[in-house]
Design a protein around this nucleic acid. Structure first.
Lengths: 210, 210
DNA sequence: CCTACCGATCGGTAGG
DNA sequence: CCTACCGATCGGTAGG
């Protein structure tokens, strides 16, 4: 009995479509782990292939270039990040509640050091305008700032924000604090991240909440 | 006439001691530039040598391993950083004044993008415990936190700090904000860093200054 | 002509 | 400090 014919029903042989999706997921998982420790520049395609249990050329078949692989890894990170954020709070909180939900999201991140390491390591390399993840980093920061800005504007419309509050600076500060706390947490300088971020939100409320 | 003998007076030939120090400084300057863009892992000894105008083995003569070179580059960064911090304020301010002086120091850093890039890029790689700059990164963060803690304790002794202020979290937040703002500034998400940091200090004062 | 790979090797470069 | 090299590994591609 021939295997891999062009007939529509295949009682034996490899289920091709499903295998491809599962294989890609395997690759993305091990690549994320390697990038998170050694960075994009410090990780070779061969090492990713070996960790995924396939050949180098097998890896290239799924991701033609190393840049393609990085892009897929970071897209997957964002998807998992968003999925977890939504799982925590069914509907997205608004106004100051959004800030407190963000603290909870950071507390959740303390259970996922691999994700935090991936973000921090790749961000460090990606400040170089020539780095393949530079556009991703800018997009990520701008999207995060935008969501914070929306929350502050909701607070303002509800009369809960001082009219002279420096909106943009506050948004950027929260993003900066989250990024910087990750570095300190990963190196052991800080025991956590959420309590520190909560301290920032508390100070903001003391100064600019109405 | 022989060149480079061990006699004390050399009317001709290369003044060796001076040359060595100057050459090392040249190497450290170009290495800092390369590390700041491509990172430690993304920079080769050969490329450093070429940029410094010497051979690969000539570079190895001054810095036996790549790790030695990185250590010297980061030590030099810290020296220049400290020198500029002292130049700004003759004596180190105390209490809340120290926080405001730090904002001024960050404003000064906006004139030195290369230094900021070096710090951010190497920090990103160095969260890996196996990275040669991991110890440097931890030392840097702990020293910065210690100086901030001293300042807050001076404020407390002067009765200018609420007794329930979360000292450690505040110190780590300031360090995190400085690090994170550097990333956003380098990628163009934020137009500056000092105004944002000043916003953090203002919020802290509103919440915990007495 | 398709898919999901394989073993082998391309021209160059890495740190030392 | 140079020329001349090493063992190995880089990202990417060949034909089958």
């Amino acid at each position: 009995m021939p295997t891999g014919t062009s007939t529509t029903s295949r009682p034996s042989g490899r289920p091709r479509g499903a295998d491809t999706a599962a294989r890609r997921e395997d690759i993305l998982r091990v690549a994320a782990e390697l990038f998170s420790v050694d960075g994009y520049r410090g990780t070779s395609m061969s090492r990713v292939a070996k960790a995924a249990g396939i050949s180098h050329t097998g890896l290239v078949h799924h991701f033609p270039t190393k840049d393609d692989l990085l892009g897929a890894v970071m897209d997957r990170r964002d998807e998992l990040d968003t999925a977890r954020a939504f799982a925590d709070a069914g509907a997205r909180p608004t106004g100051w509640d959004y800030l407190h939900a963000m603290v909870q999201m950071v507390r959740n991140n303390e259970e996922h050091p691999g994700m935090v390491r991936l973000f921090t390591t790749v961000s460090g390399e990606a400040v170089d305008p020539e780095h393949p993840a530079n556009a991703w980093l800018r997009r990520h920061h701008e999207a995060t700032v935008r969501r914070l800005r929306n929350a502050f504007q909701q607070a303002a419309e509800a009369g809960q924000l001082a009219p002279d509050a420096p909106l943009d600076a506050m948004c950027r500060l929260i993003v900066a604090a989250m990024d910087g706390l990750q570095t300190q947490w990963l190196t052991g300088t800080a025991p956590g991240m959420a309590d520190e971020l909560a301290c920032l939100v508390e100070a903001f409320e003391a100064r600019w909440r109405r």
